[in-house]
Design a protein around this nucleic acid. Sequence first.
DNA 1: CTTGACCTTCCCTTGACTGGAAGGTCCATA
DNA 2: TATGGACCTTCCAGTCAAGGGAAGGTCAAG
Lengths: 138, 138
Amino acid sequence: MNIGDVATRSGLPAKTIRYYEDIGLIKPHRSANGYRCFQEADLHKLAFLGRARALGFSIEDCRMLMALYEDESRASADVKQLALEHLSKIEAKIADLQAMRDTLTELVHCCAGDSRPDCPILKDLSGALSPEVEAKAE
Amino acid sequence: MNIGDVATRSGLPAKTIRYYEDIGLIKPHRSANGYRCFQEADLHKLAFLGRARALGFSIEDCRMLMALYEDESRASADVKQLALEHLSKIEAKIADLQAMRDTLTELVHCCAGDSRPDCPILKDLSGALSPEVEAKAE
DNA sequence: CTTGACCTTCCCTTGACTGGAAGGTCCATA
DNA sequence: TATGGACCTTCCAGTCAAGGGAAGGTCAAG
């Protein structure tokens, strides 16, 4: 298979596949004309990577997950630990975003959104303590 | 004030403050020795930027928010629209992260995490349909 | 007079790609 | 056989919002 075929079948852009080769995640063979030449196993790896990335794992996590996947004497505990660490990062991000969302929602709620310049959003950003937002924060 | 003082007082690293000057968000004066020389107004701007960034606004959003803040004939509707667009991006991110979290939580739950190689997390990444995760997805 | 804390600019690195230029290859059609 | 278009290749630059560190200038205390 050429890169276009694996791109279609894996759902990953050709650019991304080349990048993954660049950083050593996959090692496709080359045809006589210099084109990359992918086996089914390469496609399988790419699909694996695509799913891991879609779950938010970093490239380095993916590298370790692939290594574990290919290590038949692995301990599932190692995989689970990777996943748990990743999970806690995700939960921290969610909490951060939710805090932003809550503050923003409240500020937006307080803003008239009309043609007048007076704006509690800007007032808050400029350092003024907004009574409504403060109250909600308690 | 020198950059160290505003860094301390604004809570932003000196590197970040120089960067903000670089991209035109602030324009501190210079002393005879070439040192940046910050007024209270610069400090106020930096604090504004710090708070806007903490709410997740992009640098370009911050630039617009600052412009609106300094425009006494602004319409609060413009500020509100910026905030609402940002809010919807945040909500989309939260939803993405929650979906990842839910899948990961389920996978982690299914994994024994012991010394054996068998692992539902890797099984899922490799493309197998996991009955438990599939069931939860319904 | 020296030490150490501060300041300056400059360039490189991050993560995970994406875009684009310049050029080679392959295949079908005229 | 020519040619056009769809592929493929490598390489370089850019994204976002800084952070790291080198090389060198400045300032104040002891």
